[in-house]
Amino acid sequence: MSGTTIRAGEIEKFDALAARWWDPRGPMAPLHAMNPLRTRWIAERLRRGGDLTGLSILDVGCGAGLASEALARRGARVTGLDMAAEALTVARAHAAAGGLDIAYRDGRPEDLTDTFEAVVALEVVEHVADRMAFLAALARATRPGGMVFLSTLNRTARSFLMAKVGAEYVLRLLPRGTHDWRSFVTPSELGDALRRAGFRVADLAGMAMDARGNWRETRDVGVNYILAARRA
Results as ranks from 00 to 15, higher is better:
Thr4Ile: 12
Thr4Pro: 04
Thr5Gly: 01
Thr5Pro: 06
Ile6Met: 15
Ala8Tyr: 14
Gly9Asn: 11
Glu10Gly: 07
Glu12Gln: 11
Phe14Gln: 03
Asp15Tyr: 03
Leu17Glu: 07
Ala18Asp: 00
Ala18Ile: 07
Ala19His: 02
Arg20Val: 05
Arg20Leu: 13
Trp21Val: 13
Trp21Ser: 10
Trp21Leu: 15
Trp22Gln: 13
Trp22Glu: 11
Asp23Gly: 06
Asp23Phe: 06
Asp23Asn: 14
Pro24Val: 10
Pro24Ser: 01
Pro24His: 13
Arg25Cys: 02
Gly26Lys: 04
Met28Ala: 12
Met28Glu: 08
Met28Ile: 09
Ala29Met: 06
Ala29Trp: 03
Leu31Tyr: 09
His32Trp: 11
His32Cys: 01
His32Pro: 05
His32Val: 07
Ala33Tyr: 00
Met34Glu: 08
Met34Thr: 04
Asn35Gly: 11
Pro36Cys: 10
Pro36Ile: 15
Pro36Val: 15
Arg40Val: 12
Trp41Asp: 07
Ile42Ser: 03
Ile42Gln: 02
Ile42Asp: 04
Arg45Tyr: 00
Arg47Asn: 13
Arg47Val: 15
Arg48Phe: 00
Gly50Met: 01
Gly50Pro: 06
Asp51His: 09
Leu52Gly: 00
Thr53Ile: 05
Gly54Gln: 14
Gly54Val: 14
Leu55Thr: 15
Ile57Ala: 04
Leu58Ile: 10
Asp59Val: 12
Asp59Cys: 08
Asp59Trp: 13
Cys62Gly: 13
Gly63Leu: 10
Gly63Ala: 12
Ala64Gln: 02
Gly65Asp: 11
Leu66Thr: 08
Leu66Tyr: 01
Ala67Cys: 15
Glu69Val: 11
Ala70Tyr: 09
Ala72Asn: 02
Ala72Val: 07
Arg74Phe: 02
Gly75Gln: 02
Gly75Arg: 04
Ala76Ser: 03
Ala76Trp: 06
Arg77Ser: 09
Val78Asn: 11
Val78Pro: 03
Thr79Lys: 11
Gly80Arg: 08
Gly80Ala: 07
Leu81Glu: 07
Met83Trp: 04
Met83Pro: 07
Ala84Leu: 14
Ala84Gly: 13
Ala85Trp: 12
Ala85Gln: 12
Ala85Pro: 00
Glu86Thr: 13
Glu86Ala: 15
Ala87Gln: 08
Ala87Ser: 15
